[in-house]
Design a protein around this nucleic acid. Structure first.
Lengths: 190, 190
DNA sequence: CACAATCGTGAACACTCGTACACCCAGGAC
DNA sequence: GTCCTGGGTGTACGAGTGTTCACGATTGTG
């Protein structure tokens, strides 16, 4: 699993890497792979479990902050987690656009789930309390999309380049603030 | 090229489809491929040219509308173009997360370019006239990301399901309006 | 000590892959 | 009528693919 994550983090796509390249990187003969996984698909699912495990841990931590500080703490938790677990987030990001529809659909479903969870979270905020479910989902997906592209930006930025890292975080912070600024003036109809 | 686009539109990834599957779908023997392209990479570049051709045509048309109607006309042009050229947009969407870094990087660069063009466009709007370049880029990438996910949503929706199509367009419209609503109240510092 | 389980090994299997070559044939130019 | 060109065909090559199988070695347990 480490070998696979390493290659994915280096820019390869999960379903473009071969059994043999994985096992060679792991210092093992191809057949040994089958002592641990039933197939390559199986490896993909295992990586998904692990990766989404850390993603959900991140979400739990992000939710623990104070109401009024939701944006800065969320951004901080996000950047921290992504940099601490670059491999897992790189795997998810890559699997999102991959060909193996098994994985792609699973990732898409998870992200949709996260968006709808965020929608119910948002309903507890002032101004958003009496929005329609549709409108809450609308703003939740807007936010989730912004966060996904933030994750991709973080992954493209070298972890030791602190200036660039801070810049990415600032952009994410501003985007969230801009979206929230519109909330008090919202009317569902044009 | 048609055969390749067809398979991509059906959900496959560009670099997961093989020479032989393409040529078989085109009703031709593998070797005949090389009468038209130097290699598979070459085919990818040709498809990129064609696809970004229609994307840029779309952008030109979207820019032609009236100031005050920018949002609804943009959304309308977007949905129209994506549905009329599903193959090209599917190709771009898939290439964005693909493994062949040649294509992926090219697509990413194009999208970044489009975002910065949008940023200069935005500078002509009221309230946005004296924003800093950084902040203009911030809101431009926010908008571009929302549009990309809208494109993906359109592609996932059957073209003949008009109810679903209209719903996707409405969400896109609302997201843009929400973002713009925050603009007049913006302060760059928290 | 013996036994079972765990994990790695080497060879083999039946594919598929991209690419190259010699050949062929229709159609237009002279 | 000859020649050239564009495009299609059949065959072949070497490399890489996922997977299976019989076999060894190491290790902890009874």
């Amino acid at each position: 699993m480490e070998a696979a994550l390493l290659r994915i983090q280096a820019g390869e796509n999960f379903d473009s890497l071969s059994l043999r390249s994985i096992t060679k990187a792991a210092g093992v003969v191809p057949a040994a792979f089958y002592r641990h996984f039933d197939s390559l698909d199986d490896l993909g699912l295992a990586l998904m479990d692990e990766s989404f495990g850390t993603l959900r841990a991140m979400l739990r931590e992000a939710r623990r902050g104070e109401w009024t500080e939701a944006i800065p703490t969320s951004v901080q938790v996000l950047t921290g987690y992504v940099n601490d677990h670059r491999d897992h987030f790189a795997f998810i990001a890559r699997a999102r656009g991959s060909a193996s529809s098994r994985l792609r659909l699973a990732v898409l479903a998870e992200i949709r789930l996260i968006a709808s969870e965020l929608a119910t979270d948002l309903a507890r905020f002032p101004y958003l309390r009496d929005w329609s479910t549709d409108d809450l989902n609308m703003v939740a997906t807007l936010i989730v999309n912004a966060m996904i592209s933030t994750v991709e930006a973080i992954l493209e930025t070298p972890p030791d380049n602190h200036v660039a890292q801070v810049r990415v975080a600032e952009v994410a912070d501003k985007q969230l603030r801009l979206v929230i600024l519109g909330v008090p003036h919202w009317h569902s109809e044009p």
